[in-house]
Design a protein around this nucleic acid. Structure first.
Lengths: 124, 124
DNA sequence: TTAATATATGAACATATGTTCATACACTAA
DNA sequence: TTAGTGTATGAACATATGTTCATATATTAA
């Protein structure tokens, strides 16, 4: 492991100081593709809003229609609908229609795992 | 399970339509405390920025100092420092000083688990 | 002490975000 | 078809957010 200070050129041609050239190089090699990174960040960001998180948490144990969710989180049905769309776009929830009513549920086990691990982390 | 439409009063005294009174009631009983919800949302939000997520992902396999991280993500050391503080505030990373250099690492297994499960989700 | 390096921080700016409002669509019952 | 209900969506607004810049602090070497 090098502790020598080095100057390298970044992708824009600017000089950048680096302490551990090898670390930076390896990190770049390991990095996931940019579209995956952005999609992963977007998924976390969608979970990172209290309203949406409260909706998702409530779906851990039951299905809920938009109407119920609006009453539960204390917002308009319109606001809830906007949020549900974002959750659906990232496959965090799935929807099933029964007549006029659209039931929302968690999409798969990944989502509940994320919630559980996240809760463990903030509780320790 | 009731399918009868009902009108109830929310905590602000406004009339709210509810399809499944029992679902809403149970969801309210199950709900985690508001401060936990907000903290959990904040944790996801902090992971939900591409810059911070790229930093955290790079720490999966090695320690990195702020200097290296700035070169890796292609931003100023100041910008990186701001982001590292947010990550540290939520105990997502920990820091260890060695002389002038502050090494950053993931705080615990929860963080790497969250990243792995998140990646699985977006890749399926 | 002085200079150099690594990191931290407050203020300011431009951009992004969530809710509201008005309106439109989808499904059902009469 | 008509009316009623559940959901969706675009625009607009106020707020929140991330980066930049200037500056400050901390550690080490000379």
């Amino acid at each position: 492991m090098s502790n020598r200070k080095a100057k390298i050129l970044d992708q824009d041609g600017c000089q950048v100081r680096v302490v551990h050239l090898d670390h930076v190089k390896q990190a770049k090699e390991d990095a996931i593709p940019e579209n995956e990174l952005n999609r992963l960040a977007l998924m976390f960001k969608v979970l990172g809003d209290p309203t949406r998180l409260k909706i998702v948490m409530s779906l851990l144990n039951r299905e809920m229609c938009g109407c119920d969710l609006a009453a539960f989180v204390g917002l308009s049905e319109s606001a809830v609908s906007h949020q549900l769309r974002r959750l659906k776009d990232l496959a965090l929830i799935k929807q099933r229609r029964e007549g006029q009513i659209l039931y929302n549920a968690l999409n798969d086990a990944h989502v509940s795992n994320l919630l559980e691990i996240g809760l463990e982390h903030i509780r320790e």
